[in-house]
């Protein structure tokens, strides 16, 4: 039977380093997926991922009972926002470009220009580009739900909004993604 995150943390506190390794492995995919899709930069995602786990190691007592994955995502989110602020202190994350997209969206999309990516044959690139074109809040909800597999209750907590707002953002994201992926999507339809 799998141990809970809390049990693994307690084991690590007691000196079992393997317990921490198991914890990292358990959340590696979802956490890195969230970070790399929020930053759009694998090298930066590496740094943030490391920083999150260093925080976990040094601030174990800060974790209260609750969704451990949600706690990780909250820390990662704060680190990503801090990094963007440090890099461009004169620009607000909320500041929108001509198309009404936030800075975080621009940063995430900078390595995969939507027009070029959509023209590419690679399905993954096209989907990533379509997700990167979503407004920041919607993209974040989509990534937290699809990649990090967080429940909406936790997503709402991370974003500091009501669960109804988180659900509405997911609805908007899905509504926008479906036509963007129409070709790939149609190919999946039976018949």
């Amino acid at each position: 039977m799998d141990m809970s995150d809390r049990e693994l943390l307690d084991l690590y506190r007691a000196g079992d380093v393997d317990a921490m390794s198991r914890l990292i492995e358990r959340h590696r995919h979802m956490l890195f997926g969230y970070i790399v899709n929020m930053t759009g930069n694998p090298a930066e995602a590496d740094d943030v991922f490391q920083e999150v786990w260093f925080k976990v190691i040094h601030k174990l007592e800060a974790y209260r009972d609750g969704n451990f994955g949600g706690w990780l995502v909250r820390m990662a989110r704060n680190l990503v926002i801090d990094r963007h602020r440090r890099r461009k202190p004169e620009i607000s994350l909320d500041q929108e470009d001509e198309a009404g997209r936030g800075l975080a969206h621009t940063l995430a999309a900078r390595n995969t220009p939507p027009s070029a990516a959509l023209a590419a044959q690679d399905l993954g690139t096209r989907i990533a580009a379509a997700v990167a074109m979503l407004p920041e809040e919607q993209r974040e909800v989509f990534i937290m739900r699809v990649q990090a597999e967080l429940p909406f209750k936790e997503i709402a907590r991370v974003q500091g909004v009501s669960i109804n707002t988180a659900l509405a953002r997911m609805q908007y994201a899905l509504t926008k993604l479906r036509p963007l992926l129409q070709d790939d999507y149609a190919a999946l339809q039976p018949g």
């Binding site: 590696r28 995919h29 979802m30 890195f32 997926g33 790399v36 899709n37 694998p42 995602a45 590496d46 991922f49 490391q50 399905l123 993954g124 096209r126 989907i127 990533a128 997700v131 989509f142 990534i143 699809v146 990649q147 993604l177 992926l181 790939d184 999507y185 999946l188």
Partner: peptide, 12 residues
């Protein structure tokens, strides 16, 4: 589809 396609190769 998105879950599989979005980049998440894992840290180095």
């Amino acid at each position: 589809l998105a879950g599989e396609a979005l980049p998440a190769n894992g840290p180095s």
